[in-house]
Nucleic acid binder design. Structure first.
Lengths: 233, 233
DNA sequence: AAGTGGTCTAGACCACTCC
DNA sequence: GAGTGGTCTAGACCACTTA
């Protein structure tokens, strides 16, 4: 390295990436330790550390104490996507957001919903069904169960004006969650909501969240036909 | 803070998270600057910086120079998922992986595929169609177009034994990419491959990748009925 | 103009792991 | 035991933004 100018961690990252792409360092190969790299690149070890951590975080490098740093054999591609509140997603796309509460109650969840919550939770849960609209037509159908033991005050909440999603964001802390994406054929109800044929392929996201081990909510969001979830690597 | 013991950046992160969850710092509120926090928590500014950067990265905080750090009003949930090579995904699930090349050629892509590649690319592309199997039955259908200008040697590559996916991982560097997930109704060909009814809802991932602005490959992966993409928040 | 986060440095100690 | 990455520190300068 005889490059001029300041050396930031992004420069180090790009330099390392370049050496990997040009096969100077091939998949599986060890790369020099941080101190040597720092001397080589003309910066401090801290800067190299930051760059290599970013690359390890992205799956390009594998690092282990004492064992050193290696180029990953099969670079694990990762993608990340934001999960916006539906209202923001719709408004960001330039459409007018609408919300219609179909039902709000207190009931025993069916077996399918119970399975999703695992762990312990009361017999009866708050059940909310609603439609999110874009420019007046149905955008997504929401079917949600909320554990009142984990969310104080949810029994008295009114979800006719504010969606349960946004209400929960403000009132229920969350520590963990999982999401499942799948394709599903429209049932009679969904066909009516979306004005499509029964059996049409719909995109669905099922989300379950916990707070410190206690199930908080499980929600199933079914999107109108043609919905696409886009993300960047 | 009168806590004893060493203060690591994870401790700082957890302390800040606790104050947010207990509403000491509510959504939209500004939090103290890094120097004050460091003095308060009994550590150096660098440690605070690392913790706050992690929280900002997770969407919990919003930070801007001069303007300071605030608790995000609508915490943007983010999910991240790994995109494993299909062989690994199938083997990790405990199944036997199989691969069948259906066709490999050189052709003009249809309009739909051309649109996906945007930018400039040659008239004719390498076209690969294959099936990935789990325990002998079809798991995913792959339809891929590869830009020979961006991937030297792809014209002579043989994808009958090694999937194009793995071949490309070893031979084609990638700088950017995008993925789209959607639900789609099975056509005649897919119904035959998967042994399902035409019109069944199938989960599909479309991925496009570039290297330094040049399109490398576009691939459409259609999964067998019932496929679920799972991820963690 | 001034205050904030972004980053680099040089040094240090530690945890982990492989030999 | 020894070498590696993980992390903390104290200080410094800079870039950006807002008042």
């Amino acid at each position: 390295m005889t490059g001029a100018g300041p050396v930031g961690w992004r420069d180090v990252r790009d330099e390392v990436l370049g050496r990997i792409r040009s096969r100077i360092w091939a998949p599986g190969d060890p790369i020099p330790n941080e101190s040597d790299l720092a001397r080589d690149l003309g910066c401090s070890r801290g800067t190299v550390n930051r760059a290599l951590q970013a690359l390890a975080d992205a799956g390009i490098l594998e690092r282990r104490r004492r064992a050193g740093t290696r180029v990953a054999r099969l670079p694990v591609r990762q993608a990340r996507f934001r999960i916006p509140v539906l209202r923001e997603e719709i408004e960001a796309a330039g459409h007018r957001y609408g919300y219609r509460l179909l039902s709000q109650g207190f009931a025993r969840p069916p077996a399918a919903a119970r399975r999703g919550l695992r762990d312990a939770f009361p017999e009866e849960l708050v059940h909310v069904v609603a439609i999110h609209e874009a420019d007046g037509s149905a955008y997504a159908h929401e079917d949600r169960w909320i554990n009142p033991d984990a969310v104080p005050g949810v029994r008295g909440a009114d979800f006719s004006g504010l969606s349960a999603n946004e209400w929960l964001l403000r009132h229920a802390p969350i520590s963990d969650g999982e999401i499942v994406f799948l394709a599903r054929e429209a049932g009679e109800g969904e066909a009516a909501v979306f004005g499509c044929a029964p059996g049409a392929a719909l995109f669905r996201a099922e989300r379950r969240t916990w707070h410190q081990g206690r199930p908080v909510t499980t929600v199933s969001l079914t999107f109108r036909p043609g919905h696409r979830l886009e993300t960047t690597i």
